[in-house]
């Protein structure tokens, strides 16, 4: 984990990353534990993971490199940026981005 002084963990191929982290007594953001709520999102800087139930991330979030630690299982050695401080690209104000669906909202000039 790059932003935790490169703390490292041995994670089994079929083990969720958060389980290995918590087993060593470390705390990271966590919520639903089934891949549904995004609280545990982390940025994958290097490596590959398998996410059987990673339903909460949309395409934009996935292509920005985010994974969910409660469901992600490593396929290779991974380098991660974790915690809320890694969430800079996770959230956007949807009214501030173009190119997507525009709901039927009547606008008035400010």
């Amino acid at each position: 984990m790059k932003n935790r002084e490169y703390l490292s963990f041995d994670v089994g191929e079929d083990e969720a990353i958060i389980d290995a982290v918590e087993a060593k007594g470390h705390l990271l953001p966590i919520g639903c534990r089934y891949g549904g709520c995004i609280t545990c999102a982390a940025k994958l800087l290097e490596g590959k993971v398998r996410q059987p139930n990673g339903t909460a991330l949309n395409k934009r979030q996935s292509s920005a490199g985010y994974i969910l630690l409660c469901v992600a299982r490593p396929k290779t050695d991974c380098v991660l940026e974790v915690g809320v401080e890694s969430h800079d690209k996770l959230y956007v104000n949807p009214f501030s981005v173009s190119g997507g669906y525009v709901p039927p909202l009547k606008g008035n000039k400010k």
């Binding site: 104000n93 949807p94 009214f95 501030s96 981005v97 173009s98 525009v102 709901p103 909202l105 009547k106 606008g107 008035n108 000039k109 400010k110």
Partner: peptide
């Protein structure tokens, strides 16, 4: 009651 969305400068979508 109908609260109009507002066109915010730099936002492409009217903000409710």
């Amino acid at each position: 009651i109908d609260v109009d969305a507002i066109d915010v400068e730099t936002f492409p979508v009217p903000m409710p």
